[in-house]
Design a binder for these strands. Structure first.
Lengths: 226, 226
DNA sequence: ATTGGTACTTACAGTTGATGAAAGGATCTG
DNA sequence: CAGATCCTTTCATCAACTGTAAGTACCAAT
């Protein structure tokens, strides 16, 4: 069953929404504490977020931005503000849909189904700057092309992506490749890294892998120049 | 530059749209012949389709369905009908967005940008009933899982999907596999079909491949039982 | 500048998995 | 039942990924 997080401060509305959604077969999670909403949501990681814009003490826009920055969770903005500016703003921030209150429940359901369908199968897609990586198959999507990375290269790239811009120790890399750090074959790791670098180059990925002497490796930050 | 196909029968509106879109940096393709619209669009394969529902002599719904069945091109339905029923219907058929006329151009642009962003990198995804197939890598997405099909199985599935529910001749299948129908190795084709069937079974795909005696093969229709 | 350590490159061979050939079995249709 | 059509299994070949090995380039401190 798909779960939907309802972020809405007005208690009656919140209950109503939750009830409606449950009736058509969704599991609902209601947010009642409006501090650190984005963090709460990231922690709960529902299948979809219904987000009201008018919240006490915090901006719905900000929440939307935070969520989109730190995850790929779908966000459906639901609000009584009927301002064009708001809608454009929300969409710019990465909201997936925008509905104004009052709404017909059929419309809401249709939009929810639409967004959920749209996200189907993306659950194991890792987002990198300018590309996507499927954690299962190590299929890499970049500039409307797609390539299958060899397993080892995929694993390495996956580790780098999940570590953001921090340095990843060789131990961790070996662990990811062979499940053990016991016997570290530095050379094999080295060769695999070289191969990954080569394929990344051939795909015009501006992302680069830099050595951190004596420690490990890290991704070149966006906009960073050596 | 992204290209947008405008499907709109009213000449003034069509020109207006085309002009607006060009001003903000899109290349536009206007459809002026309303026979076989879906085929025209598939052939042109623009980055996005702006589709009016009220067309002379053909149903916008049908066009939408056809397009979605044979491709994964993004469709933004734009219409003067303000019926809830139409909107729900369009969304069910797979439309990506629904806007009613009259519209503010900012809203249109925002939605277009939204849809385009959403489709980024997915240009070569083929949509089947309940799954997606990457035509490049033959990565299959189903039930939030993903599997890489061997090239031959991928090619076969691709052919079936692009043929909808029609029967595909063995000649066509051989052509897809080996680029030639000259020397048809019936057996090799057979073996590859069997393999595809097996993997489809193992993935719980309710879709099945049926033989059409003496002719070729076809996909089991949705909901059809043997 | 030299030197020891670290990072990189290249070539090669083993392994794995996809493919097509072959042969025989199952199923359909008249 | 007979002939055609369709299916299954097994096996050898081939391509691609991987680790090994050996050697080269780079760096940083003395």
């Amino acid at each position: 069953m798909k779960s939907i997080a309802v972020v809405e401060d007005e208690p009656f509305m919140r209950e109503e929404l939750s009830h409606l959604l449950q009736k058509v077969g969704y599991q609902t999670i209601t947010i009642t504490e409006f501090d650190h909403v984005a963090d709460q949501l990231l922690c709960l990681s529902p299948d979809l977020i219904l987000l009201d814009l008018n919240l006490p003490g915090c901006s719905g826009f900000q929440i939307c931005r935070d969520i989109k920055q730190k995850s790929a969770l779908p966000v459906l903005v639901l609000t009584s503000r009927d301002q064009m500016r708001d809608e454009l703003h929300a969409l710019e921030l990465g909201a997936d849909e925008y509905l104004t209150k009052p709404f017909r429940k059929e419309r809401l359901f249709a939009r929810i189904a639409n967004v959920l369908k749209r996200y189907e199968g993306r659950s194991n897609l890792l987002e990198g700057p300018g590309f996507l990586l499927d954690r299962n198959t190590y299929t890499l999507y970049i500039h409307s092309r797609s390539v299958i990375l060899p397993k080892n290269q995929g694993k390495l790239l996956e580790v780098f992506l999940t570590h953001g811009e921090e340095t990843v120790s060789k131990k961790d890399l070996c662990l990811a490749l062979w499940g053990t750090a016991e016997y570290i074959d530095e050379n094999a790791l080295q060769v695999n890294l070289t191969r990954l670098k080569k394929t990344m180059l051939s795909l015009d990925m501006h992302q680069q892998i830099l050595p951190v002497r004596g420690t490990g490796y890290r991704l070149l930050k966006e906009g960073e120049h050596l």
